[in-house]
């Protein structure tokens, strides 16, 4: 397993960002973590800085329900980016939703690797990334 992954968190809840940051840092596979409270800001950042400094894979943790741009809208915008950029990222949904429609809808996006429930389970994440 690559010990140094980069993480981008997108969640409108500051507390949830902080918790996920700590969990990720604790499992020791994290080279860097960056949090965004607004999906549009994250998208802007990705467009301007598509690749990580060392070229390592970037894991994107995405919440669904957010004001302004929600998780679905973010994915749709992300899928418009060039394949070169998209291939640098793995998207994981991290949501509190127990709604089946949400889970089914997420399954339809091919860029999304997995639907994870909050709070993030560090060991499970490792098993998915290895």
């Amino acid at each position: 397993m690559d010990p140094a992954l980069h993480f981008i968190l997108i969640d409108d809840s500051k507390l949830d960002c902080l918790i996920t940051e700590k969990i990720i840092q604790n499992i020791g596979i994290c080279a860097s973590v960056k949090s965004f409270l607004e999906a549009a800001a994250a998208l802007e950042y990705i467009k301007n800085n598509p690749a990580s400094a060392d070229g390592a894979k970037i894991i994107l943790m995405l919440d669904i329900y957010m004001p302004l741009m929600n998780g679905f809208e973010f994915i749709e915008e992300f899928e418009k980016l060039s394949p070169e950029i998209r291939n640098l990222y793995s998207i994981f949904i991290l949501s509190s939703s127990i709604n089946e429609n949400d889970q089914n809808r997420v399954a339809n996006y091919k860029t999304v690797k997995h639907f994870l429930n909050k709070p993030l389970n560090g060991d499970f994440l490792i098993s998915l990334l290895t």
């Binding site: 809840s13 507390l15 918790i19 969990i23 329900y65 939703s97 909050k118 709070p119």
Partner: peptide, 24 residues
């Protein structure tokens, strides 16, 4: 009910996450 599950579970899961982190 759709939104309530989200808006009520959200903060609860945040606390659950925070508890897990704090235990470390």
């Amino acid at each position: 009910s759709y939104s309530v599950t989200h808006d009520m579970r959200g903060p609860l899961l945040s606390i659950l996450g925070a508890v897990a982190v704090t235990q470390q």
